[in-house]
Design a protein around this nucleic acid. Structure first.
Length: 420
RNA sequence: GUGGGUGUAGCUCAGCUGGCAGAGCACUGGGUUGUGAUCCCAGGUGUCGCGGGUUCAAGUCCCGUCACUCACCCCA
């Protein structure tokens, strides 16, 4: 006999805790809907080349973390490691950028990265994301950031901070990159860090080791080397954030792991999660759409980690959602009563009431216990005596108060009781 | 890919220098033949992760292995 376990690094969410997972995903999605973002449902696998070209061949995500396989037609397929590339592909493919701009879309779903799992880092994880495509307006950057902030606030989270910076664009980042590399080449760095300085010099600025931090303390920063346009854009974003009442701190050493980001980039950080503290991040991407074969339009978006936001809630003692399974629980005494309650449950459900029953011939004590554990506010107790008198006992489980209601008016009586 | 930690009941864990496999929670039944959440009683045949070794005797010691977990790297 073989027994199975979930693949390495993949979380299962089941009741009652899964109610919190759903509530987090739904609360973050609602924040996007409130700002006029429409839902887009995308495939979880795409042409491998889409991610290689969109995210960047040299990124860790593409070079060593993708689930890539060949399908039966010999095509190279990859389970999506992030959301933006797929959205851009769909926008280009269906001409969603041919109408009124910006095109505002949100998505929610699973993503996959073949990393070594640890606290808050899974091989299958969930994100809610938005993309606003086609307009390069600092007010839109600020809106996207404010939507993420509103989502986290709606969950009740307070222990996070927002960090922002600007990564410049193609007119100023290449020059800055050279300047930074020149600076880094003068430092006594170890072999691996030296290699990193070649591939992605900005990443060296984000090194966690104190000795490296000290070495790069005087390094030139992107924010001090922005083009006039990028600088102006960045200043306007900060101004709009202030107008929106969104608090932020500037982190000029912030680094993003995906190549497409330009200008505004941001990250939401929570300290209660362990080492993987980012609960969401995103930014503007100027060249991505053109890179993927579309118009040269800019976009801005974010990805929020649903799993991590849930961990953040747990760290703050917040329990999102309602773990109760039903409003009313039926307790039948005997077969005739069960038949009646099964029918009544159907009627109540049709009327929008959540109903469960004691199944399997439980005794009265066991059925009452099941009613209690179900989280229902009311129990409906039905036995021979009640059937004879044409009534059913409606018991409020919190107070223990119970009274008889007519069997033929049970739906109305229950709805009235629940409305109180 | 590289380190550290941990593997005992459905869950959380205790189990001392080797000597009968345990607790709490959860679950089921009963105390109360029509009332839960409180209380009392009863209910456990667990490959002690797996494989080998040492020993009269291994959950405990040794070797190997696998899994989980935290961290590095990186990211949501």
């Amino acid at each position: 006999m073989t027994s199975f376990s979930a693949p390495k690094g993949v979380p299962d969410y089941f009741p009652p805790a899964s109610a919190s997972f759903v509530a987090v995903r739904e609360t973050l999605s609602e924040a996007a809907r409130r700002a006029g973002y429409g839902y887009i449902e995308l495939p979880v696998f795409e042409d491998t080349a889409l991610f290689a070209r969109g995210v960047g061949e040299s990124t860790d995500v593409v070079s060593k973390e993708m689930y890539t396989f060949e399908d039966r037609g010999g095509r190279s397929i990859t389970l999506r490691p992030e959301g933006t590339a797929g959205v851009m592909r769909a926008v280009i493919e269906h001409g969603l950028d041919r109408g009124q701009l910006p095109t505002k879309l949100y998505y929610a779903g699973q993503f996959f990265r073949a990393e070594n799992p640890q606290a808050g880092r899974y091989r299958q994880f969930h994100q809610v994301g938005v993309e606003a495509i086609g307009v390069d307006d600092p007010a839109l950057d600020a809106e996207v950031i404010a939507v993420a902030d509103a989502g986290f606030r709606a969950l009740g989270l307070t222990g996070y901070r927002l960090e922002i910076t600007s990564l410049g664009d193609s007119t100023c980042r290449p020059q800055y990159r050279e300047k930074l590399q020149a600076f880094l080449s003068t430092l006594p760095l170890d072999e691996e860090t030296r290699r990193r300085a070649e591939i992605n010099p900005l990443r060296v600025l984000d090194d966690k080791r104190p000795e490296v931090r000290e070495l790069v303390a005087e390094a030139p920063l992107m924010v001090d080397n922005l083009s006039p346009e990028c600088r102006d854009h960045y200043e306007q974003v900060k101004g709009h954030l202030n107008d929106l009442g969104v608090k932020f701190t500037e982190n000029p050493r912030m680094v993003r792991g995906l190549d497409y980001y330009t200008k505004t980039t941001f990250e939401f950080v929570h300290d209660g999660l362990g080492s993987q503290s980012g609960i969401g991040g995103g930014g503007r991407y100027d060249g991505l759409m053109e890179q993927l074969g579309g118009q040269p339009l800019s976009g801005v978006g974010f990805g929020l980690g649903v799993d991590r936001a849930l961990l953040a809630c747990q760290a703050e003692g917040i329990v999102p959602g309602d773990p109760s399974r039903c409003d009313v629980f039926g307790v039948p005494l005997g077969e005739a009563a069960k038949a009646r309650l099964v029918a009544i449950a159907g009627e109540l459900r049709a009327a929008g009431v959540r109903v469960d029953l004691a199944y399997g011939g439980k005794g009265l004590k066991g059925s009452m216990k099941a009613a209690d554990r179900s989280g229902a506010r009311y129990a409906l107790v039905l036995g021979e005596r009640d059937i004879e008198s044409g009534s059913v006992q409606l018991k409020e489980l919190g107070s223990g108060e119970q009274h008889a209601v007519p069997l033929d008016g049970v739906v109305g009586a229950v709805r009235e009781a629940l409305a109180r």
